[in-house]
Simulated assay, not measured.
Amino acid sequence: MILLYLLFVCCVVKCYEPLSAQSLARLSSLNLGCGLSLDPDDSNNHFVHLNKTRVPGSKGSLEVREYIKDHFDELNKEGEVWLIEEDNFVEKGYNFSNIVVQTACADARDKLVVAAHYDTLIKPEGFIGAIDSAVSCGIMLDISRALNGLLRSHLDEMDMGLAFIFFDGEEAFEKWSATDSIYGARHLHSKWMKSAELATIDLFVLLDLLGGELNYVPSYFPQTHENYNDMAILERRLLNDFPEIMKSQNFFANPSDYEREYFGIIEDDHIPFLRSRVPVLHLIPSRFPETWHTINDDFLHVDINSIKRWNYLMAAFIIEYLELPV
């Protein structure tokens, strides 16, 4: 991920009703966080299954891919909610596989996309990539389980769908460049451009480098600054209802004028989508963690309270954006 300074034309953002105080308070009924812990003996803990190297095409990558698909297959046993697709391709001799999971909403023309990459660096050997980005994948898995019943109950009336994308090949094999990075994102973007699927993305939310102690995320793009402010407001409301989860006022987001928040663009999986004028909300800290791209990026160096906060905040944001009754 490399810092660049670009400016893109503003576009219209979705307007929706803020989550009611009653609905926000009922988040606790969804049992958020049941799959997120640092207990290595808990088989229901997603991090246990993500705690391995995940270089594209490797045994670890295949195991994690199967775990993600099995997770959604299991949720579908209660009634089909999720359409699961693998986007497989070969580039530079490596086998890549994006996992795209979307709600089976027959009448939904547009969708909210929440994405993260699940691959890891090839070097240093044994790199786990907990913050980069197993934590983000675990949050997506936990939220999908927590919201499964709500989504199943309201599929027929939803006018906007939800998609979780697990990108492969975000990391460079040699040195970050336009052709040695974001393999999965570039491939899926090209595929969706040809099928007109790209035009159905109402908002693209990308999670990366979450779960450490340094979590402040600025507002990166003017076209999604209102979405950013909505999330910042939700975070402050959550502090009132869930002080045991939020604990401190060291907020992840800060509602303010865009000019003061602008930090430029960090190259990541969102880049091809952003260049096609897809509205992007990039949730990545402006200061990378000290463990970034080192062997110490493991589950001994994550902050479980930070993970739980992001989990509640993302769940609340998704519910509010999709206007799901809680």
Rank of each mutant, 00 (worst) to 15 (best):
D142R: 08
H154G: 09
L151T: 04
L150D: 08
R152S: 00
L147H: 10
G161N: 02
K175Y: 10
G161L: 07
D142F: 11
L147M: 01
G161I: 02
G149L: 10
L141I: 12
S153I: 00
D159K: 06
E157D: 07
I165S: 04
E171W: 08
M140P: 08
L155K: 02
L151Q: 04
G169T: 12
G169P: 04
N148P: 07
L150E: 14
A163D: 01
S144R: 03
I165V: 13
L141D: 07
M160H: 11
L141T: 13
R145P: 07
M160G: 04
A163Q: 15
W176R: 15
M160R: 12
I143R: 10
L155T: 05
F167E: 03
E171S: 09
A172Q: 09
F173K: 00
E170W: 04
D156G: 09
S144I: 13
H154T: 08
L147Q: 09
D168C: 06
D156I: 00
N148Y: 07
G169F: 09
A172G: 06
F167V: 01
L141K: 12
G161Y: 06
E157M: 02
E174D: 13
F166T: 04
S153L: 10
W176H: 12
I165C: 05
L151G: 04
I143F: 05
K175M: 05
D156V: 01
N148G: 03
D159L: 02
D142A: 11
S144N: 12
I143C: 11
I143N: 10
E157H: 07
L155W: 02
A146G: 07
R145V: 10
M140F: 10
L147A: 05
D168W: 01
L155D: 03
M158R: 07
N148R: 01
L150Y: 11
M158F: 00
W176K: 12
D159G: 01
L155C: 08
M140H: 05
F167L: 01
D142K: 09
E174R: 14
E170I: 08
L150M: 14
G161E: 04
F164R: 00
E174V: 09
L147W: 07
I165A: 04
N148D: 13
F164M: 09
E171P: 07
N148Q: 10
I143T: 15
R145A: 14
L155F: 08
L162A: 06
M140R: 10
E170L: 06
D168P: 00
D142Q: 06
R145T: 10
A172T: 05
L147K: 11
A172V: 01
L155Q: 00
G161V: 09
M158Y: 02
M160K: 10
L151E: 01
G169L: 08
I143G: 08
M158L: 14
S144P: 14
H154S: 14
S153W: 03
N148E: 06
K175S: 13
L162G: 13
E174T: 15
M140I: 11
F164D: 00
K175F: 13
D159T: 01
M158A: 03
M160T: 10
